[in-house]
Design a protein around this nucleic acid. Structure first.
Lengths: 237, 237
DNA sequence: CTGGACTATTGGCTAGGCCACTGATCCATC
DNA sequence: GATGGATCAGTGGCCTAGCCAATAGTCCAG
């Protein structure tokens, strides 16, 4: 790790492995030929010869496409399309959403409101202790003049854990980079850390009281407070 | 589409390819040994020998892990961990959803309730026409003694489109296979297609009336109706 | 009509080979 | 001492070839 990395050097070349190129060629070919769910790719031996690569390399590309859900590889039968050729596009689209704050707020509202309600129903004493610890950490950060970004994240992670739903937690993780931006923007406004902490406390009390509706309403208000900032910022660009 | 699919046959065996097992073993090993970002896996020749597989099979597993973001494979250097070992858990969780109906219901409730509310706020006349067409299709399917699975999906797709949120729509698509199961199970119960259509109508009227709270409440009731069936089925296994 | 056997086609995985890349080390030059 | 070039060992990249396992289709017997 260089202590001072010069910032005007060109970025390193991106080396792509052959399987990535092959996978890309296959999805392009699928789309250009209007193939759909249930259709088959040509046999591996034939497809590898056409693409000018070894069957092992093609197999790697098919592994990649199987992992992202574009194909199902069936032993003895062939490689079958799932109809989801746009999956890799979806991931790209999600990654290219820096200007999609309103939609991020929508999905935050949907997921985090539900998580708060479930946390109120399912929280354990350990969950409550983690939530309280996050509140204390944020209080301390604010007293030190900090924004409390880490403690904010700690609080939301504790609430998510208290919901005891792996699938919801995983979905939150998948969109965590999007959500993080909206949270940081909010906490950067003067007075917002203190307001945010106050909102956190309301949420925590509802969870403590096992009141799902109050927890959902408090979280909804909290997300809406964030959206005010984010949308204003959006309009100033 | 088989006109009458028997509903009491066992589900097909899930065949796993060797690369999936190897990828799983690797992530388990990473976690058990507390490895973190920047650490290296053993060289391919050594690791393949230890795992008792060919290097090509190991390479397939590493492709899978690279695609989900757990590792970066560097030519001439080795395979480096990104620190995101839990990513492969996501794929597992998605594939192992057969016994996770309650969690699927949770996330359906979160997303579809929000989608219904947004559809009530944002729907256009075209959106309404698509929703009405789906209602008519389901009415017709039920009159013919069918369950209306396709029309049910058509309805939900129309409501999702009426929400005009690409991110929410994409997230729905990513978990669509999970959701589809809960919908089909529900519609297989006697009387459920007619009840489901009734629920759809209530949702559609709230959307037509631009009443987000009524739309959300109607969708919430609809998802809860589904959950009754799915949870009962779950307990009988 | 159903079940069993057979065949052709398909993918699954192995083994081995050789080349390309990377980082470390050493040496020469300034 | 710092820099650049050459060399080497270890690494992954991709290929070829082979043989086995799985699948779907066909045919035949009961």
């Amino acid at each position: 790790m260089t202590p001072q990395a010069p910032s005007d050097l060109p970025t390193p070349l991106a080396r792509t492995r052959l399987y990535e190129q092959v996978a890309e060629q296959i999805t392009t070919w699928i789309r250009q030929n209007g193939l759909s769910s249930g259709d088959r790719l040509p046999p591996e031996r034939e497809l590898a010869a056409r693409l000018g690569v070894s069957r092992a390399t093609l197999s790697q590309a098919l592994v990649a496409l199987e992992v992202v859900g574009v194909v199902v590889v069936r032993h003895g039968d062939g490689t079958v399309l799932t109809g989801r050729h746009s999956e890799s596009r979806i991931v790209e689209a999600i990654r290219a959403h820096a200007d999609r704050i309103p939609e991020i707020i929508d999905i935050r509202d949907a997921l985090e409101t539900k998580i708060a309600a479930l946390a109120a129903q399912r929280r354990t004493d350990e969950d409550l202790a983690a939530i309280d610890a996050a509140l204390a950490a944020m209080e301390e950060a604010i007293e030190h003049g900090d924004r409390g970004v880490d403690a904010d994240e700690q609080f939301h992670a504790a609430v998510t854990a208290a919901a005891h739903s792996d699938l919801l937690a995983q979905t939150m993780r998948e969109i965590s980079s999007l959500i993080r931006e909206t949270r940081i923007e909010s906490l950067s406004q003067p007075g917002r850390p203190r307001n945010s902490l106050s909102g956190h406390r309301t949420i925590a009390e509802a969870i403590r009281a096992r009141d799902p509706e109050a927890a959902a309403a408090a979280m909804h208000a909290h997300v809406e407070m964030v959206s005010d900032v984010a949308l204003l910022r959006g309009e100033e660009r």
